[in-house]
């Protein structure tokens, strides 16, 4: 098994592991990833936030790599030495990339449903400047409804391509992609054709920003005023493992369960997401784990959930 050292911590990893995956295995100093998504084939390489410095290629060829590399798309070699948080060059580059991602971003967080679970917010908090140096008019697009459940807010899009990969890989027909090029690129469904298939809702979950949002949740609440609860149901279409987002006893939205890196553990179908918003539709497992640095964990709303009681009895069902 190849051995890799990231910021002076060494680990042996299976053949074919990328630097980013290795960093996630180590669990600290993990480069931020805005476009890579482990469940989507061919994702990554685009946003450049995960750039790292390879100071030694391998035992065999210990030369450093001439440029910073995208850790999400660079495979570990035996003896590779990587610098992430310990490289000022990487930190500088990441600051630059963050500034680029924000250059055309509307910064309309106060009215954005993604606020609180937005990867771009996290990124700018850690790597952004306090003030934008971009003084020009930002790109503007019209808001588009794609289907009756999803809204595309192209102004906020960072062109990570994840949603197009969902469309290509999870759904039977490819109905959307990227139109135009450069700064004018936009996610589009060719003549705004509705994306209407059983798994389209996952585009919302993979979107790192608030470009694709759930219309059924629109403006209902700020995410930090809702309580996430793990639940499952016997679903013919998907694994049926979801997070229910409660306000009081009302389910405001249903999403996939996110792992530590903000990725869906398994993709869910639209029926679970949009058509099952009652507590009785679900077997409740208990409160979802929320990373302690997330604003969602700052939630001090009173948690009044009568349904949380059956929690203990559901343990058996879960294994069934």
């Amino acid at each position: 098994m190849p051995k890799v050292t990231i910021d002076d911590i060494s680990l042996e990893v299976p053949l074919g592991t990328t630097i980013l995956q290795a960093a996630r295995m180590i669990g600290q100093n993990v480069p931020p990833a805005m476009c890579y998504y482990s469940k989507l084939e061919g994702s990554g390489g685009k946003c450049r936030t995960c750039l790292v410095q390879v100071v030694a290629g391998s035992y065999k060829d210990p030369r450093p790599m001439p440029k910073l590399v995208a850790s999400c798309r660079t495979t570990v070699m035996d003896g590779m030495e990587v610098r992430n948080t310990t490289s000022s060059e990487v930190q500088e580059a990441r600051k630059g990339v963050t500034e680029f991602l924000l250059a055309n971003h509307p910064l309309d967080c106060p009215v954005c449903d993604q606020a609180g679970e937005c990867k771009l917010q996290d990124l700018s908090y850690e790597h952004g400047l306090s003030k934008s140096r971009y003084e020009f008019k930002r790109r503007e697009f019209d808001r588009i409804d794609i289907g009756d459940k999803i809204q595309l807010h192209m102004n906020r899009c960072i062109l990570c391509y994840r949603c197009t990969q969902v469309a290509e890989q999870l759904t039977p027909e490819r109905v959307h992609g990227v139109l135009h090029r450069g700064e004018h690129s936009e996610i589009s469904t060719m003549i705004e054709k509705a994306i209407d298939n059983d798994f389209s809702g996952n585009m919302i979950d993979v979107c790192p920003v608030g470009a694709l949002t759930d219309k059924t949740f629109r403006f209902k609440s700020r995410v930090w005023f809702t309580k996430p609860v793990f639940a499952h149901r016997n679903c013919p279409g998907c694994e049926g493992k979801v997070t229910l987002w409660y306000q009081g006893s009302e389910v405001l939205r249903v999403t996939s369960r996110k792992d530590k890196w903000g990725e869906a553990e398994s993709f869910i179908c639209n029926s679970c997401r949009f058509d099952h918003k009652k507590t009785e539709d679900w077997v409740i497992e208990g409160p979802a784990k929320i990373d302690s640095h997330s604003v969602i964990s700052q939630n001090h709303m009173k948690f009044e959930l009568p349904v949380i009681q059956p929690l203990l009895t559901t343990e058996n069902e879960q294994t069934a």
Binding site: R48, F100, L101, F136, L159, R181, G182, E183, H184
Partner: peptide, 21 residues
């Protein structure tokens, strides 16, 4: 270059337009 960037990666997509402006 601003006109010709494919727009796939953020430094080139956003940076080329910025430089031109």
């Amino acid at each position: 270059y601003h006109h010709e960037s494919c727009g796939q990666c953020s430094p080139c997509r956003e940076g080329t337009g910025w430089m031109e402006r």
